[in-house]
Amino acid sequence: MSPETLSIFSPALAARFDALVSNYPVKRSALVPMLLYAQDEVGYLSDGVIAEIARRLGLTELDVRNVASYYSMLRFKPAGRYNIQVCTNICCMLRGAYELYDRFQEELNIGPHGTTPDGLFSLEEVECIGACSWAPAIQVNYSFHDELTPDLVAGILADYRAQAGVPTDRSSSVGWKAQAERTKEHA
């Protein structure tokens, strides 16, 4: 069997890795992107993911773990399907990020860095995400939501529940829809 058929990654991701490795003068340069892309697909850096990336790049697993542990977006445990990252750094703090973070905890009934029992949402506080002039801002996985207020929280969660096909008794709040409309205008 060729190594590729043993891959724990989808054929598309495996092909992406092959292309990635050929981009650089040094194969190892693909390491950080590979870790992140693998995490996007698998959900976290499992032992299997680490082993396979090490094999593909000709590195030791220890070396891969050593690099992976440096970067804050990389995780060794699963997160929720929608990982909510609330920026509480200075610009967001000044515009109510902690109030927002609190509301997420209340609505989800979980604490900081918690995951809902159904695995749908996880919540964490993060450092500046580069949306300071549109504070307070959050990222849900890679999607930005900005200029938020605590009253928009329920609507955001309802929209993600709907996206996941989870029935919800909460109707999507008008405020959130209005915000989405406004955003479209500026796109």
Binding site: R28, L31, V32, L36, V67
Partner: peptide
């Protein structure tokens, strides 16, 4: 190239380390 979360990697030589597949 994508990073994976680290302010320090914005420092020029740390960025080069990161691009070479290392800790920043």
């Amino acid at each position: 190239q994508t990073g994976a979360g680290a302010y320090e990697v914005g420092e020029e030589s740390a960025l080069m380390e990161s691009l070479e597949g290392k800790r920043g």
